[in-house]
């Protein structure tokens, strides 16, 4: 019942931040969230470990706090009770509080000392990302082991892009396997062939997005072309890995019929390795987080598709594929 470090729950970790955690083991990972009872990211009931940092910059990203591979300040305004403790405690005077409640943070001078996080009892001032050891992560994952047993679930590493921290990811996957857990990753597959091969060796199920089949358009939308991604998927399929392909369906970006047909055709060509195709309709629940990070949301004003439009896409994809679902 004492506060042994490894016994801290993920939620308790949010109460403080220490940059030095990075050095507490030979391999540490930067984790920005751990969610229990995830039911749409692989089979059964799972724990989802989100690793920070991503090589893509998709315009529709709903987890903008995952993009940067470094910890960063994020302030959730509606939780603020205006106690101004954060202002008083910041050694670098990085936080300014104006009448009327607007707060500015000078990210350039912030040294990520964590004082404001410690003092903000309301949980408004946060730092995204905690350096954790494989042991720390597994302690949290182990909490729901009884549910994995009764539901055939397991652990899923997501991001950001988990393969951006290959050393940590591989160590964690190995450890999960050693403990008899089913492993999955959620990846964009934008990673070198060598790393890809080394990672998927320890993965039971790969969940991958295909954002666009046209390489140039892919680059416009995400910042990178799709050659390496598609190549990695073929490689995984050839190795006989279980694959679930997902298409985030973004209005005006990738929802045109040619792209849907091309995507489903490609997925069909991967053969029996593919369990199915999930259409993930666009939502904008992450939009407020862009502002909380002082960034501008590129798709501001884009509305979700209505049900009929999504169903039409599903029917289109079904021309090339048997197992198409909406949602995970």
């Amino acid at each position: 019942m004492t506060g042994i470090e490894s016994m801290k729950t993920w939620k308790e970790r949010q109460h403080s931040f220490d940059l030095e955690d990075r050095n507490k083991a030979a391999v540490t990972g930067l984790v920005f969230d751990i969610q229990r009872f995830a039911v749409h990211d692989g089979g059964g009931i799972r724990t989802l470990v989100f690793l920070k940092g991503c090589p893509l910059s998709c315009r529709w990203c709903q987890n903008p706090e995952s993009m940067s591979p470094r910890p960063e300040i994020m302030r959730i305004p509606h939780l603020c009770i205006g106690c101004v403790k954060c202002v008083a405690e910041c050694p670098d005077q990085a936080i300014r509080f104006r009448e009327g409640g607007t707060v500015t943070i000078d990210r350039a001078v912030c040294s990520l000392c964590g004082e404001c996080v410690e003092r903000c009892y309301a949980g408004s001032m946060t730092i995204v990302g905690r350096y954790m050891t494989v042991g720390d992560v597994m302690a949290e994952v182990e909490r729901d082991r009884p549910f994995y047993t009764t539901s055939q679930g397991g652990v899923t590493f997501s991001g950001g892009e988990p393969t951006m921290q290959p050393e940590f990811l591989i160590a964690a996957l190995k450890e999960a396997h050693a403990r008899g857990l089913h492993t999955a990753i959620e990846t964009c597959a934008q990673v070198s062939r060598e790393t890809w091969a080394a990672v998927i060796e320890h993965v039971d199920l790969i969940l991958t997005d295909i954002k666009h089949m046209d390489s140039a358009r892919h680059k416009e939308l995400t910042g990178v072309s799709n050659g390496r991604i598609l190549g990695n998927l073929k490689m995984a399929a050839n190795m006989g890995k279980n694959l679930r392909i997902r298409v985030p369906l973004i209005p005006g970006c990738n929802d045109g019929p040619e792209n849907i047909l091309a995507t489903s055709e490609f997925v069909g060509s991967l053969g029996a390795a593919v369990e199915g195709l999930d259409i993930l309709p666009y939502h904008r629940l992450g939009e407020p987080k862009w502002a909380q990070l002082d960034r501008e949301y590129p798709l501001h004003g884009v509305l979700p598709l209505d049900r009929e439009e999504v169903l039409a896409v599903k029917r289109l994809a079904e021309k090339n594929l048997g197992n198409v679902t909406i949602g995970g």
Partner: peptide, 23 residues
Amino acid sequence: EDIRQMLLNRAPKYGNDNDYADD
């Protein structure tokens, strides 16, 4: 309200699989 927030958020709560509070 700051103290209320401390009581709410900085003490473990029953219902989160935290032995300190659950015991």
